[in-house]
């Protein structure tokens, strides 16, 4: 479409390439920025420009940071014998919110998925093996999602890590807190039954 401005057309096309944004939304965003205060557009532009330059992944665990290592990896009060493996940086935030976990993390940045051409070499897996090899780690908790891909990735991790004499565990799956049996589906109930615990 001809907007009468090459710059505007380019911006709309770039915005429309972002996930979850179609041409119409892109158009609305661009026209909004055009009308907005000088500061608003400029601030957004600067933030986008510095995003790739400033934000990086922790060299130890792969979570988001602006330094060499992330705040969690540098925190001396964390338990350095446990690593929790997650699919993405957003999972670290979720687990931190619980305030129940005091160990370290490891972000895979995805899961194994041959359909999408993702094999072990495309994930942050070699670094995990290196961390375990160093000997300090006693337990690796795999917290990937309970999907076909998440479970298979967990299996891969168990197979590569266990030879180093380190315990590999998986997050339990079962009944949700405060939920009643009546509303759980039978796959969940079956899994909770299989993984039942002594009172």
């Amino acid at each position: 479409m001809d907007y009468g401005s090459e710059t505007l057309s380019d911006l709309i096309r770039s915005l429309a390439r972002l996930p979850g944004i179609g041409t119409k939304t892109a158009q609305r965003l661009a026209l909004h920025l055009l009308k907005a205060d000088d500061e608003e557009a400029e601030k957004l532009g600067n933030l986008i420009a510095s995003l790739r330059e400033k934000v990086r992944f922790c060299k130890a665990c792969g979570s988001i940071t602006e330094k060499e290592e992330c705040a969690i990896c540098m925190d001396p009060s964390r338990n350095r014998e446990i690593i929790c493996v997650v699919e993405g940086p957003q999972d670290v935030l979720l687990l931190e919110k619980t305030r129940h976990y005091k160990g370290l993390y490891h972000v895979l940045h995805g899961v194994l998925s041959p359909i999408d051409g993702i094999g072990p070499e495309n994930l942050n897996l070699a670094a995990l093996e290196q961390r375990v090899k160093s000997g300090e780690i006693k337990e690796v908790i795999v917290a990937t999602n309970p999907t076909v891909e998440g479970d298979t990735t967990a299996l891969y991790i168990a197979k590569t890590i266990e030879p180093y004499g380190c315990t590999v565990t998986r997050l339990a799956r079962g009944l949700p807190m405060g939920g009643s049996l009546e509303f759980a589906d039978d796959m969940t109930i079956a899994s909770a039954l299989e993984r039942r615990e002594k009172i």
Partner: peptide
């Protein structure tokens, strides 16, 4: 749906994976 997904992934692994261990990984699901 879960079975179809596991089957698709395993078929893709059979075609793509370089080493046998990577293929057999999908057997469990």
């Amino acid at each position: 749906k879960g079975y179809r997904r596991a089957l698709q992934q395993r078929n893709a692994a059979l075609k793509l994976a370089a080493i046998p261990e990577e293929r057999s990984l999908w057997d469990r699901e």
